[in-house]
Every structure is written in structure tokens, then in C-alpha cells.
Amino acid sequence: HDESMEIYYGTISVLENIYGKNSSHIKELLLINNKILSIKYKSIEARDAQLLTSIIGILSNLKYEIENDLLVSIEKSISKEIFTDFISFSKEQYSSGDLKICSVLICAALEDSLKKIADINGLNVTKKSMAEIINALKSKGIIQKNIASLLEPYTRLRNKVFHADWESFDKSEIGSLIAFTEEFVKDHF
């Protein structure tokens, strides 16, 4: 019974790692376990065998998703939603609100999307600067050289924005960054 429970908790831990703590996948497994616990079985072994059957199914499906890169596409579609929200909020601020808020939002969206692409491709970019991340992505062929060159001036703009150097850039530069980021997210997510 201990071994079965170890496998059960191991599966929960893997699901947490992949889908997050409150994911529907975990809820489903907990539900299966509760259902099995509520039914009378001849023995603990019979109950464990029933639970293991479900666990084997869940793990087989997980293996299939990993092998077919489906997890990455789930991750990508979630990321896209987040970035799209950021971009549209930034655009709202651009047309009727505060240029400072707008610029911070769009710079964060672009930098974060670069980090996410690196992360999805297995690059460790913790504590790396935006320029370093762009170089890493370029050298691995994850982004094209011409895109990397387009990103260079935006790295300088990002530094101005995040150093609250409000006087050193104008609205049109931020407008151009918004348009670029929108296309970039569309192409990479």
C-alpha cells in the first residue's frame, strides 16, 4: 500500500510541476481517489489496483503530451494571452492615458516574452540582461538575425524606461515598440 501511495503522491507532484497547483488535472486525480475511497473494495490491494489503473492512464497521456510537444503549445497559448493583455492595456494608455505607464507595460511585455521564449527553448536566462537574452536566442537560432538587430534599439529604449529616464524618449518611439511587440508575440507564440 505504501508503494502505491508513493506513486500516487509522485504523480500529484509531477502534475503540479507541469500544470500548476490548482490545475484541473490534479483536481481530477483527487476526485478519482475520493471516488475509489468511497467504494467498498474486497481489500486495500484491490482499491490500490483501481487507483493505479487511473494513474497509469494519466501518466501515459502525460508522456504522449511531452513527446508531441503539446505541453509547450499549452504553455505558449497561455503566455500569448498574458502578453496580449499587457499589450492591449499598454495601447489603451498610449491613446488616452499615461505614457509612462504605457512604456513600462510594453517594455515589460517585450522583455518577458523574450525570457519566455528562452525558457521554452531550455535556455537559462535568470538574471541575464535583455541584450544577453537576445544574444543567446540569436546564437541558438531561435530568433533570426534581422529580428535581433531590430531588437537592439528597443533594448536601449527599455533601459531608458526602466531607469525612469522619461525625458530621453518620445511617444513615437513607444508607438513603434508597441507595433513591434505586437508582431513579435504574434510570430513567436
Binding site: E3, S4, T11, N17, T53, I55, L59, S60, K63, E67
Partner: peptide, 20 residues
């Protein structure tokens, strides 16, 4: 990697199921 963990768990689950 996560795939290794999944495969390992799956094998353990199958072996344990056979035992029961």
C-alpha cells in the same frame, strides 16, 4: 528531466499494478 520522472513513475505504477 520531467519526462524521465513520468516514465519512471509509469513503470513503477505498472510494476506495482502487476504485483497486486
Amino acid at each position: 528531466s520531467i519526462k524521465k520522472r513520468v516514465v519512471h513513475l509509469q513503470e513503477n505504477a505498472k510494476a506495482q499494478f502487476e504485483k497486486l
